[in-house]
Amino acid sequence: MINVTIDGIKTSVHRDTSVLDAAKQCDITIPTLCHHPKLTPYGGCRLCIVEIKGINRPVTACTTPVSEGMEVTTSSPVLEKLRRTTLELILSDHPNDCMVCEKAGDCTLQELAYFYGIKENRFAGERRVYEKRDGNPLIERDMEKCILCNKCVRVCDEVQGVSAIDIAYRGFRSKVCPPYERDLDCEFCGQCIRVCPTGALTGRMWSLKGRQKDIREVDTICPYCGCGCNITLDIRKNEIVRVTSKEDTINEGWLCSKGTFGYKFLNDPARLTKPLIKYKGKFRESTWEEALGLVAKKLLKTKEKHGPDSIAGLASARCTSEENYLFQKFMRAVIKTNNVDHCARL
């Protein structure tokens, strides 16, 4: 264990802990844009600068490991002035369109601009102008809003193992893009959207469905494969706005393309809304009363005429456990047959 003092608080942390993580353990928040706890430190945004006694210039907290007896100051007039200037520089090349941005209310850059009270910009000048011409149907990429924090590049490489994007060009022309600036052609897991601190990456399906205001979060489980990822449905007016996942879950906040984008079916107009009864080869809508009455009558008649084992039931790996329990109980206790199975074998 290493003893350090952060803003006058004495603490001891594991070797290899960064100053940023040590501060977090003391409940001290240092602003960052390019840091993500599950990605390798990058030191790109320069907002996490701190003063360390004995070093005569500020250093980035995310890339500096602690050492014995270190004394760290995370906030001082000099540091705050530097942070403010850095933010101003970032914002000088960022569109001022928060009022129509999908990310408003959930944007790290917007939050920081708010807390540092940046209203006017001393560095206003030339801006990157990019034509939006990405042909993919799922991920909206607005590279004018990109602050080059490199999180999307790192998550795609380090977590997803796909490396579909990287930073191309240098200096002012630096830009995150797929090889040769082609359309994005990847696994569409959406991990990049999840880590983006600005509105540069958003879900195309989320567009104009609602932002943070009026959103109700419901934690539930993904309905696709057997991983059982924990998902959070952002709901507005009985409709899913988007699907996210929290970081303290078994899936560590990561989802796949189906988990992220595969919810459209819920609001599909083809959903069944009324019971149907087949009459002369064609379906007609009916009431629950009539439909259930018919099912009960037919099942009872079949059971009486041919015995309970002439009836079989298929339950569903898609339904809840409780529903499956009730289904097999229905087949066993009411119909009195053990002819019940589901598609585990397929």
Binding site: P223, C225, G226, A315, S316, S321, N324, V340, H342, A344
Partner: peptide, 16 residues
């Protein structure tokens, strides 16, 4: 296991 609740359906006795 391939489906979200294939374990649950088996656990709950939806097997003959």
């Amino acid at each position: 296991r391939g489906q979200n609740n294939v374990q649950g359906a088996t656990d709950m006795g939806c097997i003959p």
